[in-house]
Amino acid sequence: MIEWMVTKHSYWFYIILIMTGFYGMMAKNNLMKKLIGMNIFQWAIILYYISIGSKKGGTIPIIDAQAAVRHAVRAADYINPLPHVLMLTAIVVGVATTGIALTLLVIIYRKYGTLEEDEIIEALKK
């Protein structure tokens, strides 16, 4: 157990962030706070993916021109570019989808005059 906590310490941070976001999404009453919780959840997953790409002793995945000319590129010298690519697009798409979520909140506020979940449910029951 202690050994796991030391060698895999980075996973603790993602688990804590995911739990924070999950709790915010479930327990908070305000829809804006729920959205913030969802964003924390999303960023925990993005950080987790980026950490997958790391290699000890590796540098950024920009190939050295000298090594490329000699056809002597060793994959162990460079970190994994694939998670970076996937998360690069995921971040920008996350911003765009957050924009849609904020738009829906604006419309809900215009219609019901509040963002509190229980008050909206009360207004819907009438």
Partner: peptide
């Protein structure tokens, strides 16, 4: 964390890193 032999780092990414300059001419993988 940072294990060079983890499954995500040995499947397709070595091919991307080794062939990117030969196949596309772009050093940034």
């Amino acid at each position: 964390w940072g294990d060079p032999q983890q499954p995500a780092s040995i499947h397709v990414s070595p091919r991307y890193i080794e062939k990117t300059v030969d196949e596309t001419g772009v050093p940034n993988a």
